[in-house]
């Protein structure tokens, strides 16, 4: 069982990352909104009951979508890769 500190570290990292994206795309809020939509779609799929024939968005698809959204912002993309579970 992992120690609770890891949970709060992950939470803190997630907050910093969301802040960084918000700041980076202050002039282009539609990019930030699309990023949130991708995350929500992914999360919705994760909540589907197991054993459903259609699994929805895979980790790989999430990464591909975010990569095209963050095109040219390699630091944001590589940081995103650190959150994504291995596909």
């Amino acid at each position: 069982q992992p120690p609770p500190e890891s949970d709060s570290l992950e939470f803190h990292n997630a907050i910093s990352y969301v802040n960084k994206i918000k700041t980076r795309f202050l002039d282009r809020p539609e990019i930030y909104r699309s990023f949130l939509e991708i995350l929500h779609t992914y999360q919705k799929d994760q909540l589907n009951p197991k054993g459903r024939p259609f699994r929805g968005m895979s980790e790989e698809e999430v990464f591909t979508e975010v990569a095209s959204l963050f095109h040219g912002q390699e630091d944001l993309l590589s940081e995103f890769g650190q959150f994504l579970p291995e596909a």
Binding site: P2, N13, Y17, L36, F83
Partner: peptide, 26 residues
């Protein structure tokens, strides 16, 4: 200071649960 909307907060939630899942599977 963090000025987060509910949308932001749920993004933080999804990202941190992704990271937890990643840690659990590694």
């Amino acid at each position: 200071s963090y000025d987060f909307t509910p949308m932001d907060s749920s993004a933080v939630y999804v990202l941190s649960s992704m990271a937890r899942q990643r840690r659990a599977s590694s």
